[in-house]
Design a binder for these strands. Structure first.
Lengths: 229, 229
DNA sequence: GCAAAAGTGTTTGATATACACCCATGC
DNA sequence: GCATGGGTGTATATCAAACACTTTTGC
């Protein structure tokens, strides 16, 4: 008796909350059947067809939320026998991904009675073991901010250093020194000045940057080579 | 049509090679049926029964090699549709673990015509995508040496600093400064002096250490809580 | 000029590295 | 004593953090 295989994704985006403050948020789907009917859950679905796991995650993400991620990475596989329990439900093993989408993209997302964005750091009780999964995804995201360029996944093509710093501050939950931040990002070679600036504000116009699109956002060692999962 | 689910494990141990030099080695199993008949493959098997993924990995490891790991961690899940190909074989999704066993334990391992230890850094062509998997496991092991205590997984209860340093040198493949190594390990609080020393050699007797068994070998964030996978 | 945010400079402490030196043991 | 590896000390470079300062814009 083989367990069922499903793919789910923890999707992160920065969006304004009810007070207008940018917050780290996650789109969740309301359960419309037992078990855990009515609770919020991670978007996901069964693994079918002839696609790779990455492709399956991307497709599922698109179909359930309408979003296209700027970054997508496998998180972990969860398969404790109790996790899908409740009654004598069949066992489900979930291969979970995490993704980043830009704020612009997140605004285009479907939001309905059954799909909703919730703040990542104060979630209600979710279905199954999804609270643990989100916690772990958050932990990984925060760790990865410090040794990779994943932060760019939250931003558009062009951005100012203040915007990039805001991403770090929101995700890490603490203020960062302006000067030191600039230096460390510049030293890492993660950003390229475009030469353009943002005019209009009543202060010195900030310079715009891009990131090097020929380099991937995170070093995943031997898994970097695409199509090898 | 659901894909089949399997669990495999990349097992590392330090063992003397044919020249007597301690080397990072992996036990592999010879394929006794198609596809990839005759090639070496990672030990593994289907996921059955009512156990968690971790338990399944540990059990499978025991049954195929007779080994009990000192460290065991999920590595990644591989599910590219081509990976199990060859003919019109059914698709297999593998949840892969990696494990460390002590040298003493490795010596007790079953070694037969069909189970063999091979040096991790010069493997022949393995079955399926197992070369990629081993490469990735190696990458993870090397990365993790630097920010966790997993190295203790290779050693017994008591060890000298020279033995611990040897583990690092073999895995990383480069010599480390004696003095600096001692300082950094001591500063991290990873080791506890037992008060005992190793007498008998024609030099100053080295002190013996243990590691703190109440702390896990690697910080895995929210996944640290056991039984939550 | 003033407010505001961009951008630069400087000082300090911690950590990594290289390398020289002393210590305890068996022979 | 001498060889051998264990163990300690010290100088230097590199990096992170804290914080003061200058620059450019709109009003």
């Amino acid at each position: 008796m083989q367990p069922n295989l499903a793919i789910s994704t923890v999707i992160f985006a920065l969006r304004p909350d009810e007070n207008g403050r940018n917050t780290l948020m996650i789109p969740l789907v309301k359960r419309i059947r037992e078990p855990h009917l009515g609770k919020w859950a991670l978007p996901g679905g069964p693994l079918v067809g002839n696609e790779s796991l990455d492709e399956a995650a991307a497709r599922n993400l698109r179909e359930t939320t309408g979003l296209t991620p700027r970054y997508l990475e496998q998180l972990y596989s969860f398969g404790a026998p109790e996790r899908s329990a409740g009654a004598a439900a069949e066992r489900v093993v979930s291969i979970v991904y995490w993704a980043l989408v830009g704020t612009d993209e997140a605004d285009r997302a479907v939001e309905s009675e059954n799909v909703h964005w919730l703040a990542a750091d104060c979630l209600p009780e979710l279905a199954f073991d999804h609270n643990l999964i989100v916690e772990y995804a958050l932990w990984r995201l925060r760790a990865k901010l410090n040794y990779s360029r994943v932060a760019h996944g939250f931003l558009g093509e062009e951005f100012t250093l203040a915007q990039l710093r805001e991403v770090y501050e929101i995700v890490l939950g603490r203020p960062l020194d302006k000067g030191n931040f600039r230096r460390s990002v510049e030293a890492s070679g993660a950003i390229i000045p475009t030469g353009r600036v943002v005019a209009g504000a009543s202060n010195r116009p900030p310079a715009l940057y891009t990131y090097d699109k020929t380099r991937s956002l995170a070093d995943r060692g031997p898994l970097n080579k695409p199509s090898d999962y």
